[in-house]
Each structure stands twice: as C-alpha cells, then as structure tokens.
Nucleic acid binder design. Structure first.
Length: 223
DNA sequence: AATCAGCACAACCGCGAACTG
DNA sequence: ACAGTTCGCGGTTGTGCTGAT
C-alpha cells in the first residue's frame, strides 16, 4: 500500500544546516545523484526530513547557483515575468537558471514589491493631479510595465520571442559578468560539484523541467 | 556603548499534484 | 480504482545582521 514513510518524524532535526550536514548531503548526491529524497535521510544518517534535504540542495548547495546582487536586468526580468505569470516562482526561475525560486521569491517580497508599490503611489498621485475625469485604475500588468519603462529596462534585451534553444545562452551570457558570491563553506562544495553536474546523466525530473520550460516559452510567446 | 527597528534570507509549513503498490 | 505517500511549489516565519538613534 503506497510508499513507506520518508523518515521518522520524531527524530527530525530543524533549523539551520551545519557545514558538516552539508558535506554529508553533497557527498551523497555526488554518489547517487539528486532525486529519491525519501532515501537520503536513512542512507546518510542525517536527522533531517527528505523535504528539508531537497530544499537545502535546490536552494543552496546545487552547483551554479548565483547568490545576491541581482542585476537591473534580472530585476527587470523578474518584474516582467511576475506581471505575465503571477507568483509562479518556479516558472520565473526557469528563465533565470542561476537563481532559485526561493531566492527570486525573497527578492520580490523584500525589494521589488516595495519598489513597485512606491512607484504606483507616485503614479496614482500624478494621475489624480493631472486628470480626475479619466480612469485612474492601473492594472497590475500596466503598472509593472510602467515601472519597467521608468527604470529604462529595454524589453529587447530579454526578448521572449527568441527560441527555447537560443534563449538560455543569452540569459547566461548576461549573468556571466556578474561576480559570484557564495557562502564560504557551501561555496566550496558547490564549486567542487560543478564539474560533476556538467557530466551528470539527465534525470527524469530534469527532463520534465526542461519540457515545462519549453512549454512556458511557448506560453510566453503566445501572450 | 546599548538599544531598537528594519532588512535580508534560510528554512519551515501546508497544500495540491503525482506517484506507487 | 483506491489509499497512502512523496514531491514540488508558494506562502510565511524565525533569526541574525546592520544602521539609526
């Protein structure tokens, strides 16, 4: 009947991960590849639930993750994609391969939401002052667009009309100039794994991810 | 120097979808 | 077909850090 429980919930450890735990998790994934999270706590002896292991890997330890210092271009993409897709952070993250959905979500909640709110209040005041007879209602999408225009972000630089195959490299190129800032301990681990990830076999999840990304491309193109 | 408020971000929680036996 | 479980996602919270007073 179904699958066995992923882990013993009584002995679960919570809170921040230690570098030792990170090393254990990374070396396990190095040997077995990401996925099958259910078996990670039992195989490694980590007192973490499978969910916590997956989250730690995808949001922090996974190689190729760029942390902090969002460029104005990335900011523009997030604002634009948020307007198109809503709070679909995983979908948005698929357009920014070096960023995690959690990172994007955090950046949106702590920076961009406030920026847009501030900008909208300025627009509203301006609208009320300039023309009280016209509708002052600004849709979310147009508000985002106004914000983007205000910040001189050129849509062409991240044009969604490019094909799936040639879109990703362009995004990557845009980020290549930015400096990488890793947390000291996990950064080294991530770098160690970068080479391995390049040669790692394609997992089912990865295949699915790519399919979704490509269908997202089509959806965006259709908008 | 001490205290406080706001910020940034890692991690947790809950839910729905997908999967397995 | 069904029940029980895992997986992945989005929302939220907890906590350490930093700047202002």
């Amino acid at each position: 009947m179904g699958r066995p429980p992923c882990c013993d919930k009584v002995a679960i450890k919570k809170g921040p991960w230690t570098p030792e735990e990170d090393i254990v998790l990374v070396s396990y994934i190095q040997d077995h590849g990401p996925g099958n999270w259910r078996s990670v706590p039992t195989s490694t002896g980590l007192l973490r639930c499978s969910k916590s292991c997956r989250l730690r890997w995808t949001n922090y330890l996974r190689p190729g993750i760029k942390r902090g210092n969002f460029t104005s271009h990335e900011e523009g993409m997030i604002v634009h994609l948020q307007a198109l897709l809503g709070n679909k952070w995983a979908a948005i993250a698929s357009y920014l391969p070096q960023r995690t959905d959690n990172d994007i979500k955090n950046y949106w909640n702590t920076h961009l939401k406030k920026k847009i709110k501030r900008f909208q209040s300025v627009v509203d005041i301006h609208n009320m002052a300039s023309d009280s007879t016209k509708s002052t209602t600004t849709s979310t999408t147009s508000r985002h667009q106004l914000f983007l225009n205000k910040n001189h972000i050129q849509k062409r630089s991240y044009d969604m009309t490019t094909t799936t195959t040639d879109r990703s490299p362009s995004i990557l190129n845009l980020n290549q100039s930015s400096s990488y800032s890793y947390a000291s301990s996990t950064g080294n681990i991530s770098r160690l794994l970068e080479g391995w990830m390049k040669s790692a076999p394609k997992t089912k999840a990865k295949e699915k991810e790519q399919e979704e990304t490509s269908s997202n491309d089509n959806n965006v193109q259709g908008i």
